[in-house]
Design a protein around this nucleic acid. Structure first.
Lengths: 348, 348
DNA sequence: GCGCCGGGATGGATCGATCCAACGACGTAC
DNA sequence: GTACGTCGTTGGATCGATCCATCCCGGCGC
């Protein structure tokens, strides 16, 4: 509605221009924008008219300088992993951008060395370029948290402080164990009893958490797990060979995997052996990637509620940056299960 | 190296702090940062020491206000399309962030209504939040270009001005026709003669461009194309049914598709009919998505050189924003072909 | 009639880096 | 010894929005 037709003037109108046009002082215009209830109704109206006539919008730089805040949120992104099915970032980034916008923030992307988890944060912080960070790459501990804490930098982590349960910063995470329990129960309900696990190496906190979901679900029904688990790297090839070994040695009728990438490896092995995914051996992955959605047969997969994660993250940020500051404890969200053909039919 | 150990002071050091510590004036410090060659060697040294001792970095907001530039580049992102294999954005965004960083820019994400292609641009422009835009969503014409031009807003488009060949703005694009020619020639060289095309509806400029690559390659060898082409929506289901119809009516031995999503549809149909992708019928997709990389059999696919696109885009931006301004004509890059098992064996 | 009160509007100062015009020191030429 | 040019440096003004203390004016009580 406020869009101005025609050419942009050489220099955008300033608050002073609006003040002059409306016949009031600068402060009054500022109040009209930031504290409308301080003005008398008729004055407010007059100022607002001038604002929309000129197409005025506060200059960001000036406002940032004065208020010492940029309304920008820093998010570090890492290279796409080719050859895997990992795709949480894309979905999360979009949700975050959308939710941030509603809260009046924009997202500033920066890139980081894969080696140095702190690279990039420092400069943005010291140059007061962002108000806060969203830290996502916490798969192997979270040195960023400690460091950002020591710099008194506001931030919210997507991922629990695995390596430091006493940490007091705000975080949001998805309950991977619950997701894998969901997947495993789903298969158990279909009548499977020998359900194998293919997950990540032991140094991955997330991997062990997801594994515990499978493990817990099996034990809750008094079923054995010995020899049914494998821990490998997160690649299709690893999933493929792990599935081969498990099929030979443990004869599982179903697989639960820590990622869609690994699940794709399982599908490969099944096909090589002439086994039908779903009908002969059931498979469930994790992340509900595009791959899971378009592959044949459709890959059942645990889906993280990234939209909700973004909402919680932004709400935590608002608490951190608002006045007064509202402490935000950790939030744990529950994923859902997308059932597709790789789950197979009921076996009972 | 400049990273300060320990706690962040409550307020970061300013240029005046550095000046005082080094025993010089503010302007001298500013010169040390922006025009080092104006200072005498010993003065420069002294100032630089003070800078690193204090961990000084120019305040972004103040610099932005004074120089009337934010060193931010706006990029509008759209929701992930679930159920498709489309994944160019993710790779491109990362390349852009990385390349921008080297040029001293950061990337600001904003979201847009799918309906209104102009949403979001206006506010950022009027509030002087970004120096320029990178416009990507130009699949159906590019109203943004005309509009941004009229607002005198600097921008670079990833995508040709299809609907307005006379447009003078800077753009970078990937030669889709060349990519499809590459794919088709690849299959022709393997001995295929009846190669089918599955592409997008006629209103897509990009789709028609890619199609022309297939069409041209076929005609160059004197092969017929009649009845071998299908134009559908970009979904797996459409690709699947289009492949079915073509197999029944035209008996092709190979498919070239406008997207990996459509190619996945072809793979589905082949499997349903007991045909082996690669061995019986060859398939080539477009975009080299994660799906193409992890599916079985591996899907041959045309890969866009997004890293190069980012480099060209940033170089164009530097031209637009630099002094003096350097005009940047359109740049057309050539994609490559990733050959995988779905190409099948040599038939000769 | 005088003084007090309070919502509302006002001009000046401020945030921190950069631009500008002027100034000081030093060396050279006459 | 004085005039002049150059290089490096200096304080003040500036960008635009917001904070602060002040001021204005109508209404009310005594």
């Amino acid at each position: 509605m406020n869009r101005i037709p025609g050419r942009m003037p050489t220099t955008p109108p300033t608050l002073a221009d609006v003040a002059e046009r409306a016949g009031v002082s600068r402060q009054t215009v500022s109040n009209a924008v930031n504290n409308p209830d301080l003005l008398r109704a008729d004055t407010l109206m007059r100022v607002q008219e001038a604002i929309s006539e000129l197409g005025y919008l506060p200059n960001r730089a000036a406002r940032n300088l004065r208020t010492r805040s940029s309304h920008l949120i820093g998010l570090r992104i890492q290279p796409v992993q080719e050859g895997t099915a990992n795709a949480t970032m894309d979905r999360f980034v979009h949700s975050l951008v959308e939710t941030s916008r509603e809260a009046g923030y924009h997202v500033l992307l920066f890139s980081g060395d894969v080696g140095d988890p702190l690279a990039g944060y420092d400069d943005l912080l010291r140059s007061t370029a962002v108000d806060a960070f969203v830290v996502t790459d916490t798969y192997l501990g979270n040195p960023q948290a400690t460091w950002l804490d020591s710099r008194r930098a506001p931030f919210v982590a997507f991922g629990r402080p695995w390596d430091n349960p006493g940490a007091t910063h705000a975080w949001v995470d998805v309950d991977g164990a619950a997701g894998c329990r969901l997947a495993t129960d789903h298969l158990l309900d279909k009548g499977h009893e020998r359900i194998a696990w293919i997950g990540w190496r032991k140094d991955s906190f997330i991997g062990e958490d997801r594994r515990s979901g499978w493990h817990g679900a099996m034990h809750a029904r008094g079923l054995p797990t010995t020899g049914l688990a494998s821990r490998v790297e997160d690649t299709v090839a690893s999933g493929r060979s792990a599935a081969g070994v498990l099929l030979d040695e443990a004869r599982p009728t179903a697989f639960v995997c820590a990622s869609d990438t690994l699940a794709m490896g399982v599908l490969h092995t099944l096909h090589e052996r002439g086994l039908r995914a779903g009908d002969d051996v059931a498979v469930v992955g994790f992340d509900d990637s595009q791959v899971a959605q378009v592959v044949r047969p459709g890959l059942s997969s645990v889906r993280q509620p990234l939209e909700e994660v973004a909402v919680e993250v932004v709400s935590a940020l608002e608490g951190l940056l608002g006045h007064p500051r509202v402490a935000h404890r950790g939030v744990l969200l529950t994923p859902t299960l997308e059932v597709r053909d790789s789950s197979g039919p009921d076996r009972r």
